[in-house]
C-alpha cells in the first residue's frame, strides 16, 4: 500500500505545478455553409502560399546553405552511440596483438539465446586456446550479456548494424569478428556500459514539459 500512496502524492504535486491554459480557437463550423465560408476565407488569405514558402525556404537552406535534414544512406551514416549493440567484435591486446579471448566460456554460458558455441584446446605454449568460436546471428538477440560478462574485455559489441545478407554465417566466425591485425592501431577501446555518445550534448533538446 505504501508505494501506491506515495505515487498518489507525486501525482498531486504534478497537478499543482502544471498550469494548463485552454487556447481560444473559436468554434468549429458544424454545417455546410459556415464550413464553406471558412475554406474560402483561408484560401483567399494565402495560407497555402505561406506553407509553400516554408517548404521553398527549407529547400534553399538544404541545397545551398548546407542545412540538410536527411542523410544519404547508405553513402552517408550517422555516428552511432557507443552503447549501441550490433555485431560483436573480438579485440586484440594492443601490445602483443594476440587476441584477448582466454576461452573461459563465460559468454557461452551466459548467452540466453544459446547462440555462442566455442571449442578450446591446450596449445603448444601450455595455454588455453580458442580453436572454434561462432555466434549464430540468426538467434542472437543482441542483449549484450556476453560483452558484459567478459572478464578480458575481449568480446564487445561493435557498430556494424548492417547484417542483411544471404547468409549470416559470413560474419559469425572468430576471424571475422577479430580486429584485423593491420588495423590494430584503429582498434577502439570499449567505453563501457552506459557510456554516452560523443555528441550527446548536442543531441540534448529542451523539452517544454516540466517533468
Amino acid at each position: 500500500m505504501a508505494h501506491i500512496e506515495e505515487h498518489k502524492e507525486t501525482h498531486t504535486v504534478q497537478k499543482e505545478k502544471q498550469n494548463y491554459v485552454m487556447l481560444d480557437l473559436g468554434k468549429t463550423p458544424k454545417f455546410g455553409m459556415p464550413a464553406f465560408i471558412q475554406v474560402v476565407k483561408r484560401s483567399l488569405s494565402l495560407e497555402l502560399l505561406k506553407g509553400l514558402g516554408v517548404t521553398f525556404r527549407e529547400m534553399i537552406n538544404a541545397l545551398f546553405k548546407g542545412k540538410m535534414h536527411t542523410t544519404k544512406y547508405p553513402f552517408e551514416k550517422l555516428p552511432i552511440s557507443p552503447r549501441y549493440r550490433a555485431i560483436h567484435e573480438m579485440l586484440r591486446l594492443l601490445e602483443s596483438g594476440h587476441y584477448r579471448c582466454i576461452g573461459c566460456g563465460l559468454c557461452e554460458k551466459i548467452c540466453i539465446s544459446n547462440c555462442i558455441a566455442m571449442e578450446t584446446r591446450y596449445d603448444e605454449n601450455q595455454r588455453k586456446e580458442v580453436s572454434q568460436y561462432t555466434i549464430n546471428f540468426g538467434r542472437c538477440i543482441f542483449c549484450g550479456y556476453c560483452a558484459e560478462v567478459c572478464p578480458e574485455l575481449a568480446i564487445v559489441h561493435g557498430g556494424r548494424y548492417e547484417n542483411a545478407s544471404e547468409q549470416r554465417a559470413g560474419f559469425s566466425l572468430f576471424e571475422d569478428m577479430l580486429t584485423p591485425i593491420d588495423k590494430l592501431k584503429e582498434q577502439k577501446e570499449f567505453a563501457g556500459f552506459g557510456s554516452i555518445s560523443p555528441n550527446a550534448d548536442e543531441n540534448i533538446k529542451k523539452t517544454p514539459l516540466a517533468y
Binding site: G105, E108, K109, T120, Y122, K128
Partner: peptide, 11 residues
C-alpha cells in the same frame, strides 16, 4: 592431459 582445456565442466 587429454581433457585439459577442452571444455568447461558446466558445458
Amino acid at each position: 592431459s587429454d581433457f585439459k582445456y577442452s571444455s568447461n565442466a558446466w558445458e
